[in-house]
Amino acid sequence: MLSIVKRILGQMKNDKRSLGLLLFAPLLVLTLLFFILSDSSYVPKLAVYDMSEKFVAELENHATVSEETEKPEAADYLEDNEIDALIWSDSAGTHIELLEKNSKSAVALEAIQDTNKALQPTQKELIIDYVYESTGDNQLDSLSFVFLGVISFFFVFILSGMSFVRERFGQTLERMLMTPIRRIDVIGGYTLGYGLLAAVQSVVIILYAVYVLQLQVEGSVALCTLVMILMAFSAVSVGALVSIFANNELQLVQFIPVIIIPQIFFSGLIPIDTIPFGLGNLCYLTPIYYGCTALEMIMIQGKGVVEIWPWLAGSVVFIGVLFLANVTALKKYRRL
């Protein structure tokens, strides 16, 4: 088993490009994502009706403001004039009407809240209304952990799947199995070898996300890393298993949409409870679900081991099942 681990690390050492892709490509994608999502330069367009001059003056520091002399009907008005939010007040409080929950609304609300903060003390309550109510939670928050999980899974899956396809068709697997090595050692060595590489990748990604991109992590960074490493191990096993069904490298790539994309659906991007026909239960079949749920609980809800252990256990069970499946699949090349 150790020979295989050493061999895999040796192969990687001589294949600098793959190593570079494994370690730096996820960082590149994350960085890009970070800038796309942060969207900090956007100035929201707000409309006010019958608000105090002081409020309008302060708001103009945060947004483009247009003042209406008549109270417009929010639905049509917002859409027709491409305004992000309409603000007016009555005895109940300050009303804010927005079109729907999205990143622009989030920026608009932030501007209004900043204004309120600047004008302390606020007497009036903020009453927020959306024209189109959506059930989604704040998507901005969820994206960070989803992509952290998915990106790492994706790169590791390709790496291990590809190298296993090549082992099959280059007949190195056949040659390996014509030595007295046990099948369990072949899969064990494989999982451990690529798992180690994947673990290094996980650590790099987490450190980069937390310390360079300054991603908010409520809970423990070490626990996040552990979850990422478990997810990486399952990615190695899924890659090896899927490679059985691929006859060449191209077919493995064709499996990506089948294997990866559905997992993204269950990664927390869409709340599982809202998925109809009980399809949400499929999430238990996807390793990304266990990893991303745990990541969400740590990074956003600040939970610890006590609360997330079922998902950690889920990951471990998943890795175990895949491991046995892979050991059994090798019977095709040697019966014992």
């Binding site: 020979s3 280059g170 007949q171 190195t172 030595t179």
Partner: peptide, 29 residues
């Protein structure tokens, strides 16, 4: 299998390893 040596029809070597490293790996197995 320990008493058999098998040379498959394809080269069945690891492309990213040297001849020496390939020998060493299979000798280890």
């Amino acid at each position: 299998l320990a008493e058999m040596g098998y040379m498959p029809q394809n080269e069945a070597l690891y492309e990213e390893l040297s001849a020496w490293e390939n020998l060493k790996f299979f000798a280890g197995l």
